[in-house]
Structures are given as C-alpha cells and as structure tokens.
C-alpha cells in the first residue's frame, strides 16, 4: 500500500479542530477534577468516619465502573432522572470531572499518607491547628512528591476524552472517525490522529516536568 500524503495533510485542518475540543475539554475538566480530588483525598485521609465513608463510596463507585458507562449514564440517564437537558459537551466534561476526581483523590490520599508523621507532629508541636498543618506543611510536601502521579493521571484523563466519541462530542477521535468514513483513508487519518495526541501529551508532559523542576529542592 502507499501512504497518501495528501490525504494525511488534508485531514489535518479538521483534526486540529477536533484537537481543540479535546484540549478544551481536558483543560476545563481536569483542573476541576483535581480540585474535587484534592478535597475528597483530604477527606479520605483526615475526615471524620461518616464523611470519610461517603468519600470512600464515591471513589469506590467511580473506580468500580467503566468510564464509558459513566459517560452513558450522565448523558442518557441523568437527564431522565433529573429532568434536565445536557449537551454532549457538558455531559462529557462532567463525566471527565467525576471520573478523574476519584483517581486523583486516591493519588492525593497516597501522597498525604506518605509524608512522615514527624512533620505533622513538628507542626502541631509549634501550636499550629491541624488544618494549617495540612495546608502549610503536609500538603506542600505531599504535592511535590505527588507530581509524577498527577501528571500521569492528567495524561490518562486527556486520552479518556476520546471516549466521548460515544455521545457525539466532536473531539479529536470523533473527528478522525468522521474523516475516515468520508475518504476511507484509515492509515493516513489514524496516523494523523495518533500524531496529534502525541503532540498534545508531549506538551502536557513538559508542563509537568517544568512544575516538578520548579518545586525540586536543591
């Protein structure tokens, strides 16, 4: 077979449009997911029994079901249950927020637990209340150590946007699918799609590397 460069290049403008949606969805949902994941992770680590149980159920439910089922549920079932209308895009963003927050919560919990107990005691012994021990000492120390795992989860989250194809969100994978049904150039199109994901993720990786370096000691 011959690789038709023109099919490759012709697909790029449309694919870039899809890539924009992919990046936009990830850029909106993953930071919100991190915020919620941080709160849930703190509850999992330090929360009182009852509220911790709720957080554990939340994480268990999300991690115990496939993301595609979550996407379907939010897009098709939630509107029925609550009588609201959700666009594919907002359902997709919501699904990614919910899904990533559960995994990020576990990373946050692991990070907080890995901080030596002595640092917490040193903070408490100075007369700092517990919430400020967490925000000024344990949190910042844990965050630095968590960065590689957080970066990894962001990469997973970005790629998970491709699952939104099932509810018709015009992200990168869906755009590739549409072009291919149009021109039947599977090799060129999926090659281009893969390449664009690679570029996006490389940029994301560099951003995390940069943050890691900025926070590194010595």
């Amino acid at each position: 077979m011959n690789f038709e460069w023109s099919a490759f290049f012709d697909s790029i403008p449309n694919l870039l449009g899809g890539a924009r949606v992919t990046v936009m969805v990830a850029l909106v949902s993953l930071p919100i997911g991190l915020l919620i994941g941080t709160i849930v992770g703190i509850i999992l680590t330090y929360g009182h029994k009852s509220i911790r149980l709720i957080a554990q159920c939340y994480v268990g439910l999300i991690r115990g079901t496939p993301m595609i089922v979550q996407i379907m549920f939010i897009f098709f079932a939630v509107p029925v249950l609550l009588g609201v209308r959700l666009s594919g895009l907002s359902a997709g963003i919501l699904a990614l927020v919910v899904n990533s927050s559960a995994y990020l919560a576990e990373i946050v919990r692991g990070g907080l637990l890995a901080v030596p107990k002595g640092l917490q005691e040193a903070g408490l012994a100075m007369g700092l209340p517990m919430h400020r021990v967490i925000s000024s000492i344990v949190g910042p120390v844990a965050f630095r150590r968590m960065l590689p795992a957080l970066g990894n989860q962001f990469i997973v989250g970005l790629k998970d946007t491709s699952l939104l194809i099932v509810i018709g969100v015009g992200e990168l994978t869906r755009t590739g699918q549409e072009i291919m049904t149009d021109n039947y150039r599977a090799v060129e199109v999926w090659f281009a799609v893969g390449l664009l994901y690679l570029v996006i993720i490389s940029v994301m990786t560099s951003v995390f590397k940069f943050i890691e370096r900025a926070g590194r000691i010595s």
């Binding site: 640092l119 005691e121 040193a122 012994a125 100075m126 007369g127 926070g215 000691i217």
Partner: peptide, 30 residues
C-alpha cells in the same frame, strides 16, 4: 504548645523549606 518547644530525635525539619524558612515558619505562622 506555644510555651513548650519540642526537638525530636529525627529532627523533623520541613524538607521543602530552607533552614532560614524553617526557623521563620513559627514566627510567621503561629
């Protein structure tokens, strides 16, 4: 706890702060 300073066997310095920042921590935060 403000009246009783504690020194631990394992030092327990805050690893993300310099020596100076470690010592400034108490005056600033408490």
């Amino acid at each position: 706890r403000l009246e009783a300073g504690m020194v631990f066997q394992q030092f327990n310095l805050f690893p993300h702060l310099t020596a100076l920042e470690n010592v400034m921590f108490g005056p600033l935060k408490v």
